[in-house]
Design a protein around this nucleic acid. Structure first.
Lengths: 244, 244
DNA sequence: ACAAAAGTGTTTGGAGTACACCCATGA
DNA sequence: TCATGGGTGTACTCCAAACACTTTTGT
């Protein structure tokens, strides 16, 4: 009988969960606490953990997101593998690994997974363990993060930009059921990190028949009320089929 | 002292080496031999192997390409991680793993790396072990390949298409020092897997100042001689800087 | 009245695409 | 003389980008 190799236990998965709150893009971070020379240090990391044996990569991502952030039923997609020793940024990461995992991992291989959604129903912190919270992406990138997690966040956003171009279904999940043109434009501005022209954006919206205008308008705003829109999944599918 | 985790020994790396021979795109495959019920079976796989402990992912890819195909100094880029149990395609893969590696790997995680170049100086089989050879991509995809290697090949080509759009430097490496418009067009047709209009392609070439026409023309061809062109790396860098 | 955001069209330039004929060369 | 590939220009369409004023509503 062949001898089984050690399990795939030194592969980790990290999740970049991007949540939109109708104003800006946020990323989910977990607080990390450890001791350096007896002094408590606190910083942040992406939720994630080690893969177990006999587990698909995709399954591991789903499981870890549930364990670490209390979230279920989120579609995640893999965007990149990271496997350079230079991922370890100084003593902080080394000490944390020793204290948290009880091990020294020489070469920390991680697979980056991303998920995006609107903060609210599915994407909330109700079941999240202590220490998990949202941070605006801009802020998060300036904070001291574990390992190369800042790079993971940037890569995940790049991937998001790319996948929106090939299939904008993702924005469905980032918008509430009804939304204004401003909200939708704000989302695109967050994702592309640049301002978009109001009129050109509206023109674009009109082209897409699956973005349907409603009669309903905003209530109680201190300016002219904006029209609401909704996504029509049936029309979207028809539209997509028409592309082949 | 913390206990070291088992080494990262169940992670494999597979290399999709794409070589252009001025006519078509080829992929490097390794012959795989094993026994099924005492009968010898031969099929093909992408060169690759297991990562060792204390090794960067990128290093592993470079090392494996050297060990398995005798090639050095090739730039490789990672394109995707594959980690589903369904990668294993029936008994063939299971038997091969047992006989070749002496182990049963429950969940074969592999990281796909790609490299592209022109077949010739750097990219040749002079130092390649027996069983390594080039196959036209079209043929390779129809052959029985190990695991999900056909998918890896397709993904690598997709990645190639994408990276050429963002940075066409790759085509520099696929062309000889001097080349005709036909050769360059043929390359693009291979990569995009469709025919391109001659005149429109020429028009495009003229736009790119870093593709410089030479006075020299082909010799001894049975038709009007084609002009040669070359890539100018300095102009290319200038051109790229102008894009920001 | 004023502050704040909504709503609305036109123009321009560049890029992609489709398309057909004559030219030079060696066999 | 013929077969082979080289070389060349125009017209149309589509898309992206730039750009300014009037309307509605609550305070």
């Amino acid at each position: 009988m062949p001898i089984a190799l050690p399990p795939t236990c030194c592969i980790s998965v990290n999740c970049v969960v991007l949540g939109f709150d109708s104003k800006k893009l946020n990323v989910l971070l977990e607080q990390r606490e450890y001791l350096i020379d007896g002094k408590k240090v606190v910083d942040h990391m992406l939720p994630g953990g080690l893969m177990t044996d006999n587990e698909d990569l995709d399954e591991a991502a789903t499981r870890l997101l549930h364990e670490k952030a209390g979230m279920r039923n989120l579609k995640m997609f893999q965007f990149k593998a990271y496997g350079s020793r230079s991922r370890i940024k100084g003593r902080n990461d080394i000490e944390w690994m020793k204290q948290q995992l009880g091990v020294e991992i020489v070469n920390p291989l991680t697979i980056g997974y991303a998920s995006v959604g609107k903060i609210g129903r599915k994407l909330n912190l109700h079941n999240a363990p202590k220490g998990i919270s949202w941070f605006p992406v801009e802020e998060a990138l300036k904070m001291p993060l574990a390992f190369d997690h800042a790079i993971l966040i940037q890569d995940a956003i790049k991937m998001l930009q790319y996948s929106i171009e090939t299939d904008p279904i993702i924005v469905f999940n980032l918008m509430p059921l009804k939304f204004t043109a401003l909200q939708l434009r704000t989302l695109y501005e967050c994702i592309y990190r640049k301002e978009l022209d109001v009129r050109n954006f509206k023109k674009k919206m009109k082209q897409y028949e699956y973005v349907v205008p409603l009669e309903e308008v905003e209530q109680g705003v201190a300016h002219r009320a904006a029209r609401y829109y909704r996504f029509d999944r049936v029309k979207y599918k028809k539209y997509r089929r028409g592309m082949d």
